[in-house]
């Protein structure tokens, strides 16, 4: 399993891996918002956490279609599925998800504090948003894996995956943003939505890979 993790990380940072595409897309979204919204610093600070979360969510979805498709195209996916007796397929999928998250999504979380400055956010708000992103984005990857497994055979599955996955990510977005606001707006709680966000991630870490494994198993042709 560790070797699969390392392989996927290596692939994401080598040529054509697309580890940076997400970060650049994230940067592009966040950098254009102040021009569109206007120079109202208070307004920017108020919508900052939400914009960061939406930007990160969309950037997460960007690379998901390649999660299994690249392996399918070169025949590796067949061998990963055949390895089911040695490595349960759901665990293989979980490993691929973690590698995808570490390779493509973790850079977004690291970039988020810098981009928070663009939105004139307070340091504590930036910290809270980065923390919620750190805890919440794996959930998006796990849901996305199920979508990517369903659409693996389709040549242009990217948009379909986004449409399939986006409604399911809404709870993650809601609790992520409300925890981020909870850290800056006084009466709102931080801990409760944050814990629910963590619970969502843990729950989906089980459900997503199992669903994806099921789809991959029956999608082979």
């Amino acid at each position: 399993m560790w070797s699969l993790f390392l392989r996927d990380i290596r692939l994401s940072i080598r040529a054509g891996g697309g580890a940076l595409t997400g970060v650049i897309f994230f940067l592009a979204v966040i950098a254009t918002i102040p021009f569109g919204v206007g120079p109202d610093l208070n307004l920017l600070a108020r919508i900052g956490p939400a914009i960061l979360w939406i930007g990160a969510l969309l950037a997460c979805l960007l690379g998901l279609d390649r999660l299994f498709q690249a392996d399918r195209e070169d025949g590796s996916l067949d061998l990963l599925v055949l390895g089911n007796d040695r490595h349960m397929l759901a665990l293989t999928v979980l490993t691929k998800c973690l590698a995808h998250w570490a390779g493509s999504v973790l850079p977004l979380v690291i970039a988020a504090p810098l981009l928070g400055l663009f939105m004139n956010m307070e340091p504590i708000g930036i910290g809270a948003t980065a923390l919620t992103l750190l805890v919440g984005t794996p959930a998006i990857t796990f849901i996305g894996a199920a979508g990517a497994a369903v659409a693996v055979a389709l040549p242009r599955g990217g948009l379909l995956i986004s449409v399939l996955v986006l409604p399911l990510t809404i709870p993650v977005l809601i609790f992520g943003v409300s925890a981020s606001y909870g850290a800056v707006a006084d009466p709102d709680p931080f801990l409760q939505p944050f814990l629910i966000l963590a619970a969502l991630t843990l729950f989906l870490a089980v459900l997503g890979p199992v669903a994806a494994a099921l789809a991959l198993r029956h999608g082979a042709d």
């Binding site: 290596r10 692939l11 080598r14 040529a15 054509g16 195209e73 070169d74 025949g75 067949d78």
Partner: peptide
């Protein structure tokens, strides 16, 4: 199979 199941970049 027909495909070699090897990664081009590695």
């Amino acid at each position: 199979g027909h495909q070699n199941a090897m990664k081009m970049a590695l």
